[in-house]
Design a protein around this nucleic acid. Sequence first.
DNA 1: GTAGGGTTAG
Length: 829
Amino acid sequence: MLHKWKPFSFLEKPHICCRLSSLTFFKPSVSVARLLEEEPPLSRSHNDPVFEILSGLKKLGFRRFLSGDYFRSVVFSLDQLQVNKIINFLRIESPDFAVVFFDLMRNEYRFQHSRFSRFVVAHVLAEQRRLEELRFVLEQMLKEEGSGSAPSLCEPLLNGFRDWDKNSLVWDMLAFVYSRFEMVHDALFVLAKMKDLKLHASILTYNSLLYNLRHTGTLWDVYNEIKVSGITQSKQTNSIVIDGLCRQSKLQDAVSFLRETEATGLGPSIVSLNTIISRYCKLGFTGVAKSFFCMMLKYGLLPDSYSYNILIHGLCIAGSIEEALEFTSDMKKHGVEPDIVTYNILTKGFRLLGQMDGAWKVIQRMLDRLNPDVVTFTILICGHCQNGNVKEGLKLREEMLSRGLQLSVLSYSVLLSSLCKVGQVHEALVLFYEMEEQGLEPDHVTYSILIHGLCKQGEVQSALLLYEEMCSKSIPPSSLSSGAILLSLCENGMISEARVYFDSLIMNDWAHDIVLYNIMIDGYARQGNLEEALELYTIITEKGITPTTVTFNSLIYGFCKNRNLAEARRLLETIGLHGLKATAVTYTTLMNAYCEDGNMRCMLELLQEMHAKGIRPTHVTYTVIIKGLCKQQKLQDAIRLLEDMRYMGLSPDQVTYNTIIQCFCKARNIKMAFKLLNEMWMNSLEPTPATYNILINGLCVHGNLKDANKLLISLHKQNIKLTRVAYTQIIKAHCVKGNAYSAFMFFCLMMEKGFEISIKDYSAVINRLCKRCLITEAQHFFCIMLSHGISPDQEICDVLFNACQQCGDLSFVYEMLAWTIKSGLLTQK
DNA sequence: GTAGGGTTAG
């Protein structure tokens, strides 16, 4: 095999020159002849480069020959077999030269060595105990061979090098490097072969393997193998096993293991105890964590900075910042100086409590001794962004750059998420591209943030493109990113598209998360498509995926929507049978259905059941009850409940107010309705477009139309977000009263806001005007419609014809007739 | 071999 290499002036490099000049060349020996005779007949003519090189090396000396013209002229035509021969020859004669020649060919001529040559050199290095270099040679080989290569590497090692000195060390290093590269299956394969050959792996290899298997059940198998083989364990062995057990949520086993190892005489190491303390902290059991901290002292072990930082972090997460600060002082007293990690932990502790001033004080204290690092900045950026201050976050980014700190994927993610939160998805995308330009690899969290942001803006297509990009980079989609897309498709009414996407997730075996099924089931339930929802539920049970209460809540919603309250109620009972607990959402869904049905008795029964089960009603529950009271015209009770809610610490939301405001409008108590609107403002509740629709409708139907005009015009001028309903209902009211001009004016305002006017809007107006024999006005709207490119349908034509005839306006009848004949819409009468 | 920073949902 020929290779195209680039020549380098290797001999100009001082370190290589040194090395070469310090070596003297060897004398020829019998082994040379043996080596050359082993291979197919070699013509020892001047055309054979191997022969020429070997004899050249002999005659001129190593350094002179390799820098000479002959070698330069022939080196590019050497193939792997020829290089094998030279290296093997050198190994026998002068092993040092074999390594130097090997390195030279690889580094200066970019030569792709064969497995054979690499193993030859590996054995030379093993024999000389040059372990770092041995590791490097094998690392290079594994990088090129990749995962799954163990069988093809073991084969030559098994057949060609079995009797070589230090063969066992090469095997062990091979297993070690596979393990360090997280190619666990390959490492296990090598170990199995070693077992066949009765070769022992070192504890370092086993430790590395244990570390990489710490998340899996295989951990125990490997640990038992170590025990059986009788290899002396190191302190690390125990702490890795403890860490593994902790990660597999087998905390009790980890503690028992700690006690056992304590009995064997090795005693618990500080790392093992730190690991256990860390796990208890992560579970929120700071009390237990502290008792292990004391145990440490009992054993005569002095807590190190890890021990303190782990505990301080646990306390900060639990919100006990005071105690965290006490431990920090304690740390100093015991001669352990707080480091950058300690300060970062405390800063985050204050941030979590929303006390950014406290966070700044920590930073101030730190600045005397230490410089803030990327983590410090990330915490600070996060603090600002959480308060909605993206600008300040971006300023800190500038500060980082001016200090020469490179932003990490994490710090970018924080900025991206807050840009997305305030709806600046396109600015987020710009930052995302900048991040990639800097060579940072976005991870699944970064993608989740952007996908979610795009979906929230309704840009499902862009989100899908980004999702595909993520998959193409072999970043497995998290349930968060795929969930965002699924939810967005469902919410935008694209349920069949959602299903196609969902099926593709199942096909790729990415849909294990119940959340994804829940989103899909909810999508169907909200459409009232119970059949599909129930079919998905069956799939869940068949796959052995455990449903959650949310699954049942969606199904209950579906039954309620289809007015099958009996079945919905039955499902409520089923929740308990699955070992799950009904939530306030479950009850509120059912209560709402009973309320809609006018069955207040059942609704209140459910409320009592909630109380009995200790399920706390939410503000939504109360909103449903208020709706029930409103239906029964118990307005004062509704107001009282609204007050009670606040008393119980529940904040009424816009829907609560909308419900009650609507009720007062219907009761013609417009004054009270506006008083409640005022109350919303007082409680910093921004009224929704629905709130205004309710008020405008109230004024139109039960109040003064002039006030409705004033309200809508004022909202319109203030650019307050409204829906088309606000305009259409007032237009309707004006038509009923025969105010064609006012109707026309609001029509214009509606168009000004960019709402599309459909044929239905025109029909509504024309219908009402015709009923009052306002033919000219109706004709006027008819013409506007035509001028906007909307073709009339048969219904509109019929209405106009009839009205013209009934009201005696025959001139327009002929005009209409001509028009309808032309457009093929002639009425069949 | 152990400690610190990000997403967020039916």
